[in-house]
């Protein structure tokens, strides 16, 4: 049986209140939200209205929510597989600069946690307000600390100015991130060598050298010839639509209660441009193909160390102990917590 899925794009730039969308339009499924701040504004409304919601961007992890499925990669997948490699390669002293809101704060905590596990040392952390675009003093302070590895968790167009300013100031240090390049394609927007030795654990970048991905990228540019880059958000939203399609075909209806239940009962696998992706009913996240991507001095991207990484942390007991299969589908006793790494 097959269903024609009607996708309606509802542009809602008002930002933080999506109530009219759910209550007024009565949608079967909601995709959306770019920043973690908007996702956290959307979730309470989603939960209140028992609305199936897919958040497709990479984020800081930890959301355990009956009605929300997070199909982007999370730090437990991106950092745990890359930080040990990087500290072995470059040294143990790490300096973190991060955007000053929930994404940056929590991801920085993840770096602390995993640095502890691999025996590395976070020398200093600096949280930078989102409207800052001038990084002179930050660059000075990094030079003073002289770290082996710089973790950049910068977000948005203001923060993107950092790379060029760092380059102009002659600050030369390997960098690690969970967001840059795969999302904002800084390696194409900035002249080399600003992003030299930037490492990111990614589930997707358009440069992934597989035939499967090449077909996707070609198709994308055929459909949208003016697109600047096919980023992880595009890929995640693409395969998530196919996940949803499979769920609908399995139950034979777009009824939300039945879809929520079937998603909780057994994993669904799709062949995404990144490779095989499998849902995890316990945590409402997905197993991703994680690769360590690196930009060289010409901003050419290379990949290494590909492995399938489960969203393992959320279901660890006793903490966080997320298990959304305890009650299948919609639940009055809904779980909607966002857990953060403890003790770091």
């Amino acid at each position: 049986m097959s269903f024609e899925v009607v996708v309606e794009v509802v542009l809602d730039d008002a930002g933080l209140d999506d109530r009219p969308l759910i209550v007024g339009v009565d949608v079967d499924v909601l995709f959306g939200g770019f920043a973690s701040s908007s996702r956290e504004a959307i979730r309470p409304i989603v939960d209140e209205n028992q609305q199936l919601y897919f958040y497709t961007n990479q984020y800081e992890g930890g959301v355990c929510d009956t009605y929300t499925w997070c199909t982007g990669a999370v730090p437990e997948q991106q950092i745990s597989t890359t930080l040990e490699f990087l500290t072995n390669e470059f040294g143990n002293d790490i300096y973190t600069i991060a955007a000053d809101y929930n994404f940056g704060q929590i991801t920085a905590a993840w770096y602390r946690k995993i640095a502890d596990e691999v025996g590395a040392n976070i020398m200093e952390e600096e949280f930078i307000p989102l409207d800052v675009s001038q990084f002179g003093s930050t660059i000075n302070r990094i030079q003073e600390a002289d770290p082996d590895l710089l973790v950049t968790l910068l977000v948005g167009s203001n923060h993107a100015s950092f790379y060029d300013q760092k380059n102009a100031a002659g600050l030369d240090v390997p960098m690690s991130t969970t967001v840059n390049m795969a999302q904002g394609y800084e390696h194409l927007r900035f002249d080399p060598p600003a992003l030299t030795d930037m490492y990111v654990g990614v589930n997707y970048m358009q440069e992934i050298p597989t035939d499967q991905n090449q077909t996707f990228v070609d198709g994308y540019y055929e459909r949208w010839p003016d697109a600047d880059y096919v980023g992880q958000m595009a890929q995640n939203s693409y395969f998530t639509t196919y996940l949803y399609k499979q769920a609908v075909e399995r139950v034979g209806t777009t009824d939300q209660d039945e879809i929520l239940a079937t998603l909780d009962e057994e994993p669904i696998t799709v062949e995404a441009p990144e490779g095989t992706v499998t849902t995890d009913p316990e945590t409402h996240h997905v197993t991703h193909q994680i690769r360590l991507a690196r930009a060289d001095e010409n901003h050419e991207i290379s990949f290494q160390n590909q492995q399938a990484v489960e969203p393992y942390w959320l279901r660890e007991t006793p903490y966080p102990g997320c298990d959304l299969t305890e009650t299948t589908g919609a639940s009055e006793d809904e779980e909607m917590t966002q857990y953060e790494p403890e003790g770091v």
Partner: peptide
């Protein structure tokens, strides 16, 4: 013009002092 323009790139290099360096253009 879309969501962003290509950046220009800061000219003029940098000056060195001690362990620090600073963009000449700034």
């Amino acid at each position: 013009f879309g969501s962003s323009l290509d950046s220009i790139g800061t000219p003029l290099g940098n000056i060195q002092y001690g362990t620090f360096s600073y963009s000449t253009y700034r």
